[in-house]
Design a protein around this nucleic acid. Structure first.
Length: 200
DNA sequence: CCCTGATTCGC
DNA sequence: GCGAATCAGG
């Protein structure tokens, strides 16, 4: 693995984002071992490790034992409060369709870097990571049992490239019964009559 | 078994 | 310096 400033920066970013080592590895197309190893060498802030290898460097040192004193020796309850974000896994989903409900609020993912096309491990990793994700989508947009404060339907015509900072949806008021505004509906629904000379 | 991160150690 | 192997907990 060639650890360029680029890749190192990316590693740091993802690491700071709280992604698992394996996830980072998948994104960088390297193994989690590489990630962990590098992270260590970079002295990146360790994450709540599920294990703690037998702690050497303890027990001995009579000095500390003396200092510790058998009286009210504060137990080393190292319970470092780790508010690690439960972000866990962010899907590489290119187009967040859910944005239809939330127009122009959060157009882009927190990735201020250039768009990256991650080939991933196609041979073993399909588009979706192992997490079942949340099947709590859809079904609301049709019925919408709670029309309160509804920001109204918005044109979901994509502007820009998904995944890039500037990406967003049109957001204009769509035509009745259409997902797009008048402007983009024209483009979206090509009239058959006009298409004859438009399409080769 | 799957996952996780940490450490070890040959390269 | 690197990362696979290994360890170890959930």
């Amino acid at each position: 693995m060639e650890w360029t400033d680029e890749t190192i920066a990316r590693l740091k970013e993802l690491w700071a984002e709280g992604l698992s080592t394996a996830e980072i590895g998948r994104r960088l197309s390297i193994t989690k071992n590489a990630v962990v190893g590098k992270a260590h060498r970079l002295s990146l802030p360790p994450r709540p490790s599920p294990i703690r290898r037998s702690d050497k460097s303890k027990a001995a040192t009579p000095e500390s034992a003396v200092k510790a004193a058998p009286v009210a020796a504060a137990p080393v309850k190292d319970k470092a409060p780790q508010p690690v974000a439960p972000a866990a896994d962010t899907q590489p989903a290119p187009v967040p369709a859910a944005s239809v409900d939330a127009p122009a609020s959060k157009p882009a993912a927190p990735q201020p870097k250039a768009a990256e096309v991650k080939p991933a491990k196609v041979e073993k990793a399909p588009a979706a990571p192992r997490t079942p994700a949340k099947p709590k989508t859809s079904l609301r947009s049709i019925s919408d049992p709670e029309p309160k404060k509804r920001r109204g339907p918005s044109c979901c015509w994509p502007i820009g490239d998904p995944g890039t900072p500037g990406f967003h949806f049109c957001g204009a008021t769509p035509l009745p019964g259409k997902p797009y505004c008048a402007e983009h509906a024209q483009i979206a629904y090509v009239k058959l009559r006009d298409r004859r000379d438009n399409v080769a």
